[in-house]
Amino acid sequence: MHGPEIQWYVVLSGMLFATGALGVMLRRNPLIILLSVEIMLNSANLLLIAMSRLRGGEDGQIFAISVMAVAASEVVVGLGLIVAMGRRNVELDVDKLRTLRG
């Protein structure tokens, strides 16, 4: 394996995941939240592909491609929802959507 050993990739992936999680937890605009989810998905992809390289089999890459397809589908639906929200002039702020208050 050229370049860094696997531990570097693990750490990098973790940091990306944590960043994405921070974005989900801290931002109020649903678009930004969706982008942060993308970051998290990509961090998982990175780790998958790194492990695939480590073990010499393509299974990780197959998995990563499936993840990409699913992420794309999810983005389609999420953006569709956001557009619908925008059309109804609902304010794009997740803190305003509080009807599930207990």
């Binding site: 693990v10 750490v11 992936s13 973790g14 940091m15 995941f17 944590a18 960043t19 999680a21 921070l22 937890m25 801290l26």
Partner: peptide, 13 residues
């Protein structure tokens, strides 16, 4: 959030 994020990072590693 910062704590949770840091914890997840540590745990992943």
């Amino acid at each position: 959030a910062i704590l949770a994020g840091g914890a997840i990072l540590a745990e992943v590693c």
